[in-house]
């Protein structure tokens, strides 16, 4: 088998023969990690499902859902994923590191915007007394939305560190492999958010 056949992620566009196999293992390993992470999210979703009526007389879905803000957050996160795809394409077609970094920074900025809106929402929830200590429903709500938010924050840190590495080393094979994995992670968070958007917010107020 030639290296061309074993390279399952042509988007990596690695510039040499031989090391591709290990990078391929890394990307595959990251898929496995995401699978495990998806189980984690799935379980928190399930717990949320069992607790959606456990409001104990406190604020419920109608009180905690601010659809306008949620719509903005959804838009920002989708934009972020979209920009990341363009960054990946820039990497694949070797459009240069600056074009890559422009799209990369669009992805980061909208991701940061998402997080800011989410934090404002959380701030509002604290003001109206919808704190996680109030009821089982709110515990589950904060944990599920917060777990996603924590993942986004981690992703932003990762983007920041990778940006510095790109500036320092350029788009080397190691960096390309890291970007590919970050991309998987970033799109994964988008999918999870679609779940939260539909099951927590839309279904909550429907």
């Amino acid at each position: 088998m030639s290296d061309q056949q074993t390279n399952m992620h042509p988007g990596l566009n690695l510039g040499y023969v031989g090391g591709g196999k290990h990078e391929e293992s890394k990307v595959f390993g990251f898929w496995v990690f995401l699978m495990s992470d998806l189980v984690t999210f799935g379980l928190v979703f399930a717990i949320f499902g069992t607790m959606r009526n456990a409001t104990a007389g406190g604020p419920g879905a109608h009180e905690v859902t601010e659809l306008r803000s949620i719509a903005i957050q959804t838009g920002l996160l989708l934009l972020s994923s979209f920009a990341f795809s363009w960054a990946s394409l820039a990497m694949k077609y070797e459009a240069g590191r600056w074009r890559f970094l422009i799209w990369f920074s669009v992805a980061a900025t909208s991701g940061l915007g998402f997080l800011i809106f989410e934090l404002l929402d959380f701030h509002h929830l604290i003001e109206i007394g919808a704190v996680p200590q109030r009821s089982g429903y709110l515990s589950a709500f904060w944990s599920l939305v917060g777990l996603h938010g924590l993942h986004v924050a981690g992703g932003l840190l990762w983007i920041g560190v990778l940006t510095l590495q790109i500036l320092k080393f350029g788009l080397t094979d190691t960096i390309k492999s890291r970007i590919t994995r970050l991309g998987l992670y970033w799109h994964f968070l988008d999918i999870v958010w679609i779940g939260i958007f539909s099951l927590v917010f839309l279904a909550g107020v429907a």
């Binding site: 717990i47 069992t50 607790m51 104990a56 996680p132 200590q133 089982g136 589950a140 944990s143």
Partner: peptide, 20 residues
């Protein structure tokens, strides 16, 4: 979270459910 931050996942009161 239940123990440190006063959440109600598995507590007896305020909607917690140990069966989870």
């Amino acid at each position: 979270l239940d123990r440190l931050a006063g959440f109600h996942f598995f507590t007896n009161d305020l909607g917690g459910n140990m069966m989870n």
